[in-house]
Design a protein around this nucleic acid. Sequence first.
DNA 1: CAGTGGTCTAGACCACACA
DNA 2: GTGTGGTCTAGACCACTGC
Lengths: 232, 232
Amino acid sequence: MLPSKNSYTDIKEIVLARIRDHTWPPGSIIPGEIELAEEFGCARATVNRAMRELAEDGILDRKRKAGTRVNKSPVRHAKFAIPLVRIEVESTGAAYRYTLLNKKIFIAPAWLRARLSLGDSAEVLHLQCMHFADNTPFQFEDRWINIDAVHNIENADFTTIGPNEWLVNEMPFTDVEIAFSARVADKKLAEYLSLSIGEPVFTTERITWLSGTPITFARFSFGRGYSLKTRF
Amino acid sequence: MLPSKNSYTDIKEIVLARIRDHTWPPGSIIPGEIELAEEFGCARATVNRAMRELAEDGILDRKRKAGTRVNKSPVRHAKFAIPLVRIEVESTGAAYRYTLLNKKIFIAPAWLRARLSLGDSAEVLHLQCMHFADNTPFQFEDRWINIDAVHNIENADFTTIGPNEWLVNEMPFTDVEIAFSARVADKKLAEYLSLSIGEPVFTTERITWLSGTPITFARFSFGRGYSLKTRF
DNA sequence: CAGTGGTCTAGACCACACA
DNA sequence: GTGTGGTCTAGACCACTGC
């Protein structure tokens, strides 16, 4: 039994070290919680927390009855903070400014109905707006909101507060899908973001649901040179 | 005391509901763990786990002595899986193929020294390689490895196994910085990825350290139409 | 069915940060 | 100092799942 290695962080370190030095090679099964608790001289709950967190990080794969294995494909998980645009801009020290460009109710186009699994006659509120940092274009927001799912939407005017910020405060959600990609600036986008046509644009798309009901689809196009960073 | 709401997931749901209906508005302090444990009729450890996970998700902000507050800026954290390219390609059902294009040792150029905090005469191994999915270009990898930090690097030949995969298996690391952006395809990149010059390219850059020592800088440029997705 | 991880409890001590 | 969250323990029961 190892002495005085009883914190869950210590156990994580030991386990990681054993994986790195191939004591427990990728794909291999590692001892059960009771056995490890005895070896480390701690309670099973402590081992459990260490192993659970390593599993969350994608290092281990745990299954009841089958035991705990070292993950073969070392999938790392990167965590990105997705803040409000306003917060993001203000955190750089720049002044934030918001402008509503368009606001209109439509019957959802086919591509959107497909994306959100909407019915044929579903109505959506389409919004386009700009977010500026010190008066330089920071982000263009293209948003569709499923009107049936957000019933007091008619009372929101979106002239002073962006749809993202409004929705975050008014509308709960349970599921989010995010996609990152690189797209080309078309004529409109180039105009809005002060780019040349054909320039690359970092784009994120987001769909949110409330327990199965689609709420909104949004595409965010960022100005020149934007990059999304994280560290862990 | 609420009856039969004693699992940590139940508690998370209740807390989220109270935040959504503004029982506990953003920025407000919420009751301590002992009080909540009494209210929910469960142990403090159970409340603790619920609150800890909500704090990890960025919903709550916890401080010893100061208590637990509802986070003002609703920063959501998106978790992205960063798998090996090979796994990523194979998971789509395509056949994976790898090619080494260049391999040469240099004195680190100034921009790289700045990025990795290297000394003036630091040597780096520069590698360029391609990853294919069913013989269509999937990813171009441009990598610099700090030779001093990876001492058995001379024995690796990288003709059959990519540097990413080799490093993951041989070299532990403690810190990673990842950045996503959209870049323009220059002549070489267009050639490698079968693109036109000027096309947008989804790019990720990664720097890894082992307890303060820089290991490697890598830039990954993805083929047309690639997008990184996550759901939570 | 049986073994493994998943969770909960009641109690305890500790560490940090605010007064 | 003192109150809050952070962690650990010893024990218990449950739930999933592979055999």
